Amino acid sequence: MATDAALRRLLRLHRTEIAVAVDSAFPLLHALADHDVVPEDKFQETLHLKEKEGCPQAFHALLSWLLTQDSTAILDFWRVLFKDYNLERYGRLQPILDSFPKDVDLSQPRKGRKPPAVPKALVPPPRLPTKRKASEEARAAAPAALTPRGTASPGSQLKAKPPKKPESSAEQQRLPLGNGIQTMSASVQRAVAMSSGDVPGARGAVEGILIQQVFESGGSKKCIQVGGEFYTPSKFEDSGSGKNKARSSSGPKPLVRAKGAQGAAPGGGEARLGQQGSVPAPLALPSDPQLHQKNEDECAVCRDGGELICCDGCPRAFHLACLSPPLREIPSGTWRCSSCLQATVQEVQPRAEEPRPQEPPVETPLPPGLRSAGEEVRGPPGEPLAGMDTTLVYKHLPAPPSAAPLPGLDSSALHPLLCVGPEGQQNLAPGARCGVCGDGTDVLRCTHCAAAFHWRCHFPAGTSRPGTGLRCRSCSGDVTPAPVEGVLAPSPARLAPGPAKDDTASHEPALH
């Protein structure tokens, strides 16, 4: 009773807030009518008042009428009001819900409408889902798969039609296919003929059939049928067999079959498995989609049935006599038709004709302190090069084509190399640097090759510096006499390219 009084008091307290929050009759008014909170006449009256005075006034009048009803109607109103779709449509209802007392429970059932309790003993237990329907569909599909699609060729003596089998029958139906081979029951999904010589313990000319048996419980189990008994694959494991010639990621696949039913060829011909030897223990289905393919039931050349050999690369099948050149017997292992072999060759040939990528240039590290003349020119003028003790990398590039010797140069053309002071002394051009340390401070000019250098860098042994005729380390061993002091540049003949010694390969005349 306390809860009923509290709900009535809360409705009177929030009546105006609810009326202002509800700006549309749908969905709240319609939901109240659906849950029998508002009768039909009051529903029509509220809609009429909404058209006349507006939605807030109409709902305020409806809530005032609701306060005169019993506690069950008020409880049902609060339940409908706080439904998710009403809270989404009328956003101003959320503060009312947040301020609702926590001790007021809106989930209690309506009085007088409590459903009768059902004894637990009368409640049926839930049924577990079964796979009976899938099993029945598999039974119905198996006879259809064994139905012949056409008439065999005159040369083929193997013609068999499976008798119709009602689904209610649980007995196995067997077809006489000759040579002791028996087909599987209607619940078998796949059958492959297997030679009895590969099964340990088999006697006589009995041949087993590799099947997948579907049981009534819905589970499946792969086994071997020899005669009327089934054997699990673990009985046929043979770890010492060295003649297993397995197909790549293979499961067994029928390579020879008669049109209309699988079996042995007439005249004692023995149908073979995809792999010879003992049956392997793992009978998992292969991951290669080509091995799941269903080959055609007629020859791809003459479009006739009979004894066919199936290609492992495509769905086509052929007569042995229709092949070019014809085959006398079934080859062992994987067999592919000429079209598949030709496609494989065409895929391999473009790969062989692809040009080989060019090898990157060989990189040879230079000892610290040495650099090529090109690196000396590329440096920024007026700045010493940083990191001189790091190992430089010199790339061996292809030799350029031989060019004509340089033409003779006048001494005026070499004027930018040297600057003559007032006393006739050779001065260095701006930006000249030593080729060893890279520093341009207090550098000297070689009178023979006009290269800038430090005496301490080229002659670290402490050799005394002569007063005139300074030469760098590369030119100090040259027998050519030094030019007379005061000459602007060496003779043009000295600039012609010539053979250089091994220790002077990195010091070429550089223009500054």
Rank of each mutant, 00 (worst) to 15 (best):
A6T: 06
L7I: 10
L7K: 01
L10H: 15
L10A: 01
L10N: 01
H14G: 03
R15K: 00
R15T: 03
T16W: 00
E17P: 01
E17V: 02
I18C: 00
I18G: 04
I18M: 04
V20N: 01
A21H: 03
V22C: 01
S24F: 02
P27I: 03
A31V: 01
A31H: 00
L32R: 01
H35T: 01
V37D: 04
D41V: 02
K42L: 02
F43G: 04
E45H: 00
E45D: 03
H48G: 02
K50E: 06
K50H: 04
E51S: 00
E53V: 14
E53H: 04
P56C: 01
A58I: 00
F59Q: 00
A61W: 15
T68D: 00
T68I: 00
T68S: 07
Q69T: 01
S71N: 03
L75H: 09
L75E: 00
F77D: 01
F77N: 00
V80L: 05
K83E: 00
N86R: 01
E88K: 04
E88W: 07
R89P: 00
G91P: 04
G91E: 15
D103V: 03
L106Q: 00
G112P: 12
K114A: 01
P115V: 13
P115M: 09
K120M: 14
A121I: 08
A121T: 03
L128P: 12
L128G: 15
P129R: 04
R132F: 01
A134P: 01
S135T: 15
E136Q: 15
A138C: 15
A142M: 09
A144G: 14
A145Y: 15
R149A: 13
T151G: 14
A152I: 07
S156K: 03
Q157P: 11
K159Q: 01
A160I: 08
A160T: 04
A160Q: 01
K161G: 15
K165D: 03
P166Y: 13
E167V: 12
E167S: 08
S168C: 10
A170W: 15
Q172R: 15
Q173Y: 15
R174Y: 11
L175R: 11
P176N: 04
I181Q: 00
Q182W: 02
Q182T: 15
Q182E: 15
M184L: 04
M184F: 06
M184R: 09
S187G: 06
S187I: 05
R190M: 02
R190I: 02
A191Y: 00
V192H: 07
V192E: 05
V192N: 03
M194R: 06
S195V: 04
D198G: 11
D198N: 11
V199G: 11
P200Y: 02
A202S: 08
A202C: 14
A205P: 06
A205I: 01
E207S: 04
L210C: 02
L210V: 07
Q212E: 04
Q213P: 05
V214Y: 13
E216N: 15
G219L: 12
S220Y: 01
K222D: 07
K222E: 09
Q225S: 10
G227P: 04
E229F: 06
F230I: 04
Y231K: 03
T232V: 11
P233A: 11
S234Y: 11
S234A: 13
D238M: 08
G240R: 10
S241W: 08
S241N: 12
G242V: 10
K243C: 06
N244C: 04
P252L: 12
K259C: 14
G260E: 10
A261T: 11
A261Q: 12
Q262N: 12
G263K: 13
A264I: 00
A264P: 09
A264C: 07
A264S: 12
E270C: 11
E270K: 06
E270R: 06
L273E: 07
